[in-house]
Amino acid sequence: MDYRELKELWEKEEKDTSEGWDFSHLENRSEEEDLPWDYKEIVRKYLKPDFKLLDMGTGGGEFLLSLKHLFSNTSVTEKWDPNVKLCEKRLAPLGIEVKRVFDDSELPFKDEAFDMIINRHESFDIKEVKRLLKPNGIFITQQVGGRNNESLSKTLIKDFEPLFSKNTLENNLKEIEEDFFEVLYAKEFFPYLRFKDIGALVYFARKIQWEFPNFSVENCFEELCKLHEEVKTKGYVESTEHRFIIVCRKKK
């Protein structure tokens, strides 16, 4: 297959119209290294049946429902309109409280409303988390760090500058400890992410636009061709992701 044909193939990937965070299109075309912790098991370790629970940025509620926590003791927040509508359709009829939010520092709940707040890959204001938690309340967050896919972004995007470079475990711990939390567990990891064909990378880069600003097959064609040669040699193109997790308890 020559590069003209490859370009046409990659442009089809670029124009894929699937919505939201559906990456099933990449099944068997990419490989991601497992994290050295299990977010779900960590949440289950601290979650008690009678806890008032808040899931920040719940998405469609899939993870939350897998916890099987008492619905009447459960609340969720979500920012993205399609997910808000999905939560109202899927979660609200079960008795789960659904709140749309616009500002991390102004969440629509009373002071000390929750025994536990969980957050996976959602932004947060630690002062607002503190306000919402009861004394000794637990906050668990797993975050996408500011160095996520940084090397691949620099390969594809000229003069790339990461938007969230300060989002690291170290910086978050400083802020959390300053706000009267006891850190119970914290870990950072840089797993690999491998793309087995360049079409898969194109699809991914178009989805994660803040990490690949102004990405297009046309704009990055030369760089994509070089990476295609790497796939032919190694069998994949590798990126490095950035993840960290923090479990902390609000002091009295």
Rank of each mutant, 00 (worst) to 15 (best):
T240K: 13
L64V: 02
G60N: 14
E161N: 13
E218C: 06
N219M: 06
R120E: 07
D159R: 15
L53E: 03
E112Y: 02
E11M: 14
E5A: 12
S24K: 09
P162Q: 11
E128I: 05
I246P: 01
A113Q: 06
K196Y: 15
D115G: 12
L9H: 05
F221A: 02
R44G: 07
K15I: 08
L9E: 11
N148Y: 11
R131K: 11
D2H: 04
K12Y: 04
H69C: 09
L35V: 04
E218R: 15
W37S: 04
D55L: 02
S153Y: 03
R4M: 11
K7I: 11
D81Y: 13
N136A: 13
E11P: 00
D104V: 05
D179T: 14
W10P: 01
K40A: 12
V144Y: 06
F164A: 13
L156F: 13
E188M: 01
T17I: 11
W210F: 14
Y46R: 03
L132A: 05
L169N: 06
D34N: 15
F23D: 06
F181G: 01
K207V: 04
P191G: 01
L224S: 06
D125W: 02
C225S: 14
R249A: 10
R131S: 06
K7V: 07
H121A: 07
E211N: 12
T233E: 15
D125I: 03
N167S: 14
D34K: 15
E175D: 11
P162V: 10
R120A: 09
L163P: 00
E150L: 12
I176P: 05
L64Y: 01
P108F: 12
L156V: 09
S151I: 07
L156W: 10
L64F: 00
S18G: 03
L65Y: 13
K7P: 02
F204R: 06
V183W: 10
L35Q: 01
G61V: 00
F189K: 03
N83P: 00
F190R: 07
F23C: 05
R243L: 10
A92W: 01
D125M: 01
F180R: 07
E97V: 08
L53C: 08
P49H: 11
